[in-house]
Write a protein that binds this DNA or RNA. Structure first.
Lengths: 215, 215
DNA sequence: TTGCCGACATACCGATGAGTATGTAACCTC
DNA sequence: GAGGTTACATACTCATCGGTATGTCGGCAA
């Protein structure tokens, strides 16, 4: 009867759903979940509600799909680096650089994901979407865990400042993810500008966690 | 006829307004501006809409008052430190420690302020509240400027890593302000826990900006 | 004591927007 | 080429919520 009861992009309408997700991400990024109307998303698509509700059963489901798309990309790109070669500091730096670059490149989707599951959702529609919700929270936890493990490696190797790994992860992400708050892409953004921002944030985060050389 | 056309807490009803602001901050923190209903704020107060609309003319005005309360406290406490004694590194560290501590102590109000003027507002009610809006943006800029100047001092004194000051400010705030995303106060939160978090974040941010000793 | 006013509560209105029901044109299949 | 299905658009319903209009009650001044 319908496309797919889950939010997975299986088969039918996969590219149509992708286009909807991208448009939705732009509007969600701009106004947040609550203040975004489905009509507004449809207008950005040059279409009407009908198109969206043909592929998604609710606004929440669409929102979840944005989050999933974001987390899938991050996990897919960062995990191999974490499991790759190099010592903890080298791997962590490569992960951070890739992470910030993805945020900057894929801003709408990533910004929505970084903002996170706004509390309004957890309380409101938690029951109906409990399974999807858990899987998203799971992905976020997994992602943080990847960083936490590398950081833990580095601490035990004596490379990083001696902090509780879980707590050290927070400002590390903070230094990077904060860009979703202050960064506004300019028309004619040059790729090297993005690269410079990514490099600066990565260096800051790495200095924050590396063991100081002053004895 | 009415209390005060501006959002200033002048004279009449000052403490009543304060109580409303605190309750509003809690609900805004939880649900964001758009998803927060005035009825919900009233319920948290154990009152009805009537009480709120007696002191505030709109939901936006109430929201602005939360932001103003937050920025006033930050400016009031941090500026003296910036203008105090000590070299740039010492002053910046004291500022950061105070900043994070205030965020943790005053979480609801500060979290709303850190989240910032959500874009939905700027577009929607910008015209009616243009003056208030400008003054809030002004306070935020001033606050960031205080940090930027100390950071600039430190860079020129050769204490800090050689970065564009405006760009260096971003991850510095990021490492600290990110706590508003991940930190959830626990029942029976001990003051020393707050102090440890504040110290850890401050140390991270300072290491991030201090010139590395490795030649 | 009377009359006014501040401090709310209650009752109501109108707009917005999520979700649904229904139409409909193209396309695919046999 | 008839019947079904996909991919939408259109039209409508209904609940929520911001804001307002009005009522009420206690205190305070004359």
């Amino acid at each position: 009867m319908d496309i797919d009861s889950s939010s997975l992009k299986t088969g039918t309408g996969s590219e149509a759903r992708d286009e909807i997700v991208r448009a939705a991400a732009e509007v969600f990024m701009e106004f947040g979940f609550a203040a975004t109307s489905i009509d507004a998303v449809a207008e950005r698509l040059g279409a009407t509600k009908g198109r969206i509700y043909h592929y998604y059963r609710s606004k929440a489901e669409l929102y979840f799909d944005v989050q999933i798309a974001a987390m899938e990309r991050l996990l897919r790109e960062i995990e191999p680096i974490a499991r790759g070669e190099g010592n903890a500091a080298e791997r962590l730096e490569a992960m951070a650089l890739r992470h910030t670059t993805i945020l900057l490149e894929d801003l709408p989707i990533q910004k929505v994901a970084v903002r996170g599951l706004e509390r309004e959702l957890l309380g409101a529609v938690a029951a109906r979407h409990a399974k999807t919700l858990r899987s998203i929270v799971r992905m976020r936890d997994d992602y943080e865990q990847i960083f936490a493990e590398v950081i833990d490696d580095g601490i035990r190797a004596g490379l990083f400042a001696d902090l509780p790994p879980r707590l050290a992860t927070k400002p590390f992400f903070g230094a990077m993810n904060w860009l979703t708050v202050w960064y506004a892409p300019r028309r004619l953004q040059k790729p090297e500008d993005i690269a410079e921002i990514a490099r600066t944030l990565t260096e800051f985060a790495m200095r924050g966690i590396l063991k100081g050389a002053q004895p």
